[in-house]
């Protein structure tokens, strides 16, 4: 606890000034407006009409809201553990300086550079449709594959695979964190005769916890708001049979396709509460396992 070095609190606000100004002008106004809209019937053309808790009551009775919550939770719970372990695994492998490693890192990062381009939609269909690559490989083993991307019970998994495929950002953050770990700790560990796996669990992982924590929080926040994968692959409908109807996609359909911006805002605030609760819990648990040097 050496924070007394900076003992003039007003200086902190100077450093925060740009952020505070931005918060007040670009962020708080939209947030407050959306909160207000959530209590209104607002079709984006005529002035909002106050209806109190009406939107929230409608949400409670809307089966598609519940469906989209279940789809989103499955996406979060199934996607994140894989994405993060995958990113960490590759970061550790590609950490060491050796021939070609820079190219490898870039190559593994490439899918993430691709983002949500329209081309992804076509690529994914080429892979997972009835006559796609996966099924062609399966047919070599005489297995008849299904139409992965268009069947209600598998479509979501192709989107989860897409999110795992684009693991690059997490990997880069892990790589940055790994470089912060002093090499001499490993040397000391090796002298003690610890194996690679043991070194990973006794040195790497504990020291990397701030980055693990960061990635976990950020991927959770982003995954709950996932929109683009389903938007580009299902054409913005959540098909087949709502199996890829992400919460944010349903919110978008309400707001932009059906001009129910009031309802969409109510949905947004419910999502905010859900994410805040989950993130709050993570921060609470995080205190126990995240290692900070202060």
């Amino acid at each position: 606890m050496k924070r007394h070095v900076f003992n003039k609190p007003w200086e902190a606000y100077l450093f925060l000034l740009p952020w505070l100004v931005g918060l007040l002008s670009f962020t708080i106004i939209p947030i407050i407006m959306s909160l207000y809209f959530s209590f209104t019937r607002y079709d984006m053309a005529n002035s909002p009409l106050w209806i109190g808790m009406g939107n929230y009551m409608t949400m409670y009775k809307d089966p598609r809201v519940w469906k989209s919550i279940s789809v989103t939770f499955r996406y979060v719970l199934l996607g994140i553990p894989f994405q993060l372990s995958f990113a960490l695994f590759l970061a550790v492998i590609l950490k060491k300086q050796r021939a070609g490693v820079r190219i490898y890192r870039a190559v593994y990062y490439l899918p993430s550079l691709f983002g949500g381009s329209v081309a992804v939609a076509l690529l994914w269909r080429q892979i997972f449709n009835k006559e796609g690559i996966i099924n062609r490989l399966l047919s070599l083993l005489s297995i008849e594959g299904k139409n992965w991307i268009a069947s209600p019970d598998t479509a979501l998994y192709t989107l989860i695979l897409l999110s795992i495929w684009q693991f690059g950002s997490s990997m880069v953050i892990f790589l940055g964190g790994l470089q912060q770990i002093p090499q001499d700790l490993y040397e000391a560990g090796s002298i003690d005769g610890a194996g690679k796996v043991r070194l990973f669990f006794t040195i790497t992982l504990p020291l990397l916890t701030p980055m693990v924590f960061f990635n976990l929080i950020m991927t959770i926040i982003n995954a709950f708001q996932a929109f683009t994968p389903s938007y580009i692959i299902s054409g913005g409908t959540g098909s087949p049979v709502d199996s890829t109807l992400f919460y944010t996609l349903y919110l978008y359909i309400n707001g932009f396709k059906q001009f129910k911006m009031g309802y969409a805002s109510a949905m947004a605030w419910v999502l905010l509460v859900i994410i805040a609760a989950v993130t709050g819990v993570m921060f609470g648990i995080g205190k126990k396992w995240v290692y900070y040097d202060d």
Partner: peptide
């Protein structure tokens, strides 16, 4: 600051 990250983009878009 963290909470500002949690409000979906699409509802911020119209007021912005």
């Amino acid at each position: 600051m963290m909470v500002t990250l949690m409000l979906p983009f699409h509802v911020r878009l119209i007021p912005q």
